[in-house]
Design a protein around this nucleic acid. Structure first.
Length: 216
DNA sequence: ACATTAATTGTGT
DNA sequence: ACACAATTAATGT
């Protein structure tokens, strides 16, 4: 049993309330760290661990048949990857890619314990709650893609990025944003220009500053 | 410090 | 969406 992991779980994942479960996780869990930019799980690979996120940000993207990537959502400290449950329960290949947006620390639970842990009530609650949160977030994302215009989607994208990074200065190229939103680079550049004229952002090379009034 | 090259952004069609 | 121009940053000499 690793007392350090125990402490991290208690501190960052209070939903996992039962002491017995905490102890088991601290026994079988593996502390894993990823550097910013590391691909944690790629399309087509098998899930070996379910990650409980301790610190950092994980970006989740989906790829279609033509190789276009689409940004889905961020995972933050205190959360876990719902996708990985279903994947590993059914021993399925991953439909998504996860990448460390910032340096990230997770406690990885080997998949064989997923079933076992269901004897704990707080594990059930934790998993269900996690699914619920993810569903809500995904529905919002679908709304955004299906019904909103690109300028709104871009603003939402920037806001999310600022929120998870805790910094109004975003360092990214227009091209990368375009990939995430499945748009053309020119469209993104032009929309950003409009936003700049409207004093809603400031632009620089590899840099976008979202004005504070744009945050909720 | 200067020239060269590469990467990023802007614009017209 | 494409082609190309303009600008800015990175690198070599």
């Amino acid at each position: 049993m690793d007392p350090y992991i125990l402490e991290l779980i208690q501190k960052k994942h209070p939903q996992i309330a039962e002491r017995g479960l905490q102890d088991e996780i601290a026994t079988v869990g593996k502390l894993m760290t990823f550097k910013r930019g590391d691909v944690i799980l790629d399309y087509g690979s098998y899930v070996k661990y379910v990650p409980l996120i301790i610190e950092g940000i994980i970006k989740v993207t989906r790829e279609n048949e033509d190789g276009n990537e689409l940004f889905l959502y961020y995972l933050e400290a205190g959360q876990t990857c719902s996708m990985s449950f279903t994947c590993c329960m059914m021993n399925k290949k991953s439909d998504i890619r996860t990448k460390a947006e910032e340096d990230t620390t997770v406690v990885g639970i080997p998949i064989k314990y997923m079933d076992l842990f269901f004897k704990y009530q707080s594990w059930k609650n934790y998993i269900m709650r996690s699914y619920d949160e993810r569903m809500k977030e995904l529905v919002l994302t679908i709304d955004s893609i299906a019904f909103k215009k690109m300028d709104e989607r871009l603003l939402e994208y920037l806001r999310k990025k600022v929120r998870v990074n805790g910094d109004p200065v975003i360092s990214i190229t227009h091209q990368k944003i375009a990939y995430d939103l499945n748009a053309s680079r020119e469209a993104v550049s032009r929309l950003l220009k409009q936003l700049e004229k409207a004093k809603r952002v400031e632009l620089g090379r590899n840099m976008i500053i979202l004005s504070l009034k744009e945050m909720d």
